[in-house]
Design a binder for these strands. Structure first.
Lengths: 315, 315
DNA sequence: CATATCAGTTAAATACAGCTTAACTGTCGC
DNA sequence: GCGACAGTTAAGCTGTATTTAACTGATATG
């Protein structure tokens, strides 16, 4: 049990030697002479009471003891290294790495990147577009914009206003499809990126708000929200657009939402960062800019009657 | 990235301080004076460029940097410690820890413990009865006797002869239930510990080998094999006994298996240890004793017609 | 077959990290 | 106000870790 640990530098030397399977290369990695490394390994072997390496002609190989120790040692130094880097990163107030889903990154963050850079030239902003749930330390990320029904326990989290979906299309298409009923003839575009929601939030649900019982079967399906919006932008059809994904295009007039009923999505975006980091200069700057930027297109939401999904009558 | 790590002793001091939330207790743990610990922390903070602890009146608390570093450091030293202990354990040739399921431990290993101890007085044998799949390093175990359909890739593994099941009961009950058909009236005992097998290996399957279509619904159910055998031993009914669990009692005559048909179980016991440890003195001694002991009751298997489960005709 | 080279070891000298003792600061509880 | 407590600081010592330089023994090369 409480067998005290051997000298840590010796363990680090062993780790390097085991990873490289060469004392010479290990010595190089640690910026010491091969002699020093040889001593370290020898000292460790004395502490253990058994050899860790079998010295062969021009190579070394691990003994059973070495093979037992090596993986744990590698893990340990890996873990120390990431943790230390993460702590170092906190010292840096000019870098900021933000992760968000591919859709939001493409449709909301990327188009505004230039504007943020102009407002905060001292901050080097980076994006990491992934859906993977994240570990701020391991993934070297400072801020996450997450969408879903999850909770953010253990993190600092600020909800962004509620999401809704409503049909969107190019202004040209809007001249043809002027009533909800006319959409029954329209080419519909499906965004599967929010299929995981319960209750679902799809075309049949929106049609129900119009008193229409219709489950469309044909149309283009996209696994990512931004691709669905891009298809709508190209005039390919009518998409059920999520607020966060389409407000930029609605604001610019590239898309229109002719029907003034929207379905509230039973999930929301949250601005998430590690507890206690919310006031680091670059995170605070980004957070304030981010929420101010959202407010700029808030007026769009006011144009809609947003119906909570549970208030929609089944047909 | 390649930010070199700070002095490792300082990191260890930080780990201890963060775990205890007290420099004094950390110093005690590391067998150094509080002054030394204070210097270590200070040195680490200089390397980092930021404080790790906030010094309060009579306590310390972690800063954000400290909170970022602490979990990784704790993991790292934990990992080092287990790996080191595992390597140390390899030096010890007098201890042997064996893990097996509760059933085998109770019905096979425990009754033979005394015999092994007499044959190998120099070896201190310990049992760890658990079903959990194991990590030899983390769980401080040398040998595992595992039952199942799994593979043992990455380990040294030796299969034990095939398992089968056949009805067993006390000699007294055997006077009443002399034919397979008579079992339809017998109180049956169910061992649910092998319910996970596919295809299943239960009463209906054994009855099919006798041309009987019978799915019993009543009877005592046990989640562990040894409890089912204990029930049979007490005369409470007829159990479907697994070879490994009942051969000791059959050999001793405490149980009898009047019907000479057994169903081969589609899974087997394996003797498993870490690669390269199979010839450590105590493991080799145990292994040889173990397989020799099994051979002693091998004659029992010869008394049965063992039918592979896939050869049993469906009814 | 001699020779250069490569990987690791050993010896002796040295530098410095890390430790200790001892005295000090500030706070809390009595 | 006093003593106890938690952590800090200063000065000096100890021993670990490192370097230089020479050595071993195996392998490749001309």
């Amino acid at each position: 049990m409480s067998t005290r640990l051997p000298p840590l530098t010796a363990l680090r030397a062993f780790d390097a030697a085991a990873r490289h399977m060469s004392f010479a290369r290990a010595a190089e990695e640690l910026n010491v002479t091969p002699a020093a490394l040889s001593f370290q390994i020898k000292s460790l072997e004395e502490h253990l009471g058994a050899p860790l390496f079998r010295r062969l002609n021009r190579a070394v190989e691990l003994t059973e003891s070495g093979r037992t120790l090596a993986p744990g040692a590698a893990d340990a130094f890996q873990s120390l290294s990431t943790a230390w880097n993460a702590a170092k990163r906190l010292q840096n107030n000019t870098n900021l790495t933000v992760t968000a889903g591919p859709g939001l990154t493409a449709k909301w963050l990327a188009p505004r990147l230039y504007e943020f850079a102009r407002a905060h030239p001292e901050i080097d902003l980076r994006f990491s577009a992934t859906l993977r749930m994240l570990d701020f330390v391991r993934d070297e990320v400072d801020v996450a914009i997450r969408f879903g029904q999850g909770t953010d326990e253990g993190y600092w989290s600020q909800p962004i206003r509620r999401e809704w979906v409503t049909p969107v299309m190019t202004p040209e298409l809007a001249e043809t499809y002027t009533t909800p009923e006319s959409l029954l003839q329209a080419p519909l575009i499906f965004d599967e990126s929010i299929n995981f929601l319960k209750p679902p939030c799809d075309w049949p649900v929106w049609f129900r708000t119009q008193g229409i019982d219709y489950t469309p079967t044909h149309g283009a399906h996209f696994s990512q929200a931004d691709h669905a919006i891009d298809a709508a932008l190209s005039g390919a059809g009518v998409a059920l657009g999520r607020r966060g994904m389409v407000n930029t295009d609605l604001h610019a007039g590239r898309l229109v939402a002719p029907f003034k009923t929207a379905v509230e999505v039973p999930a929301s975006f949250r601005f998430v960062c590690a507890q206690g980091t919310e006031n680091r200069p670059q995170i605070k700057a980004f957070r304030e800019w981010f929420f101010a930027e959202i407010e700029k297109t808030a007026y769009i939401s006011d144009q809609f009657t947003v119906i909570p999904i549970e208030d929609i009558p089944p047909l």
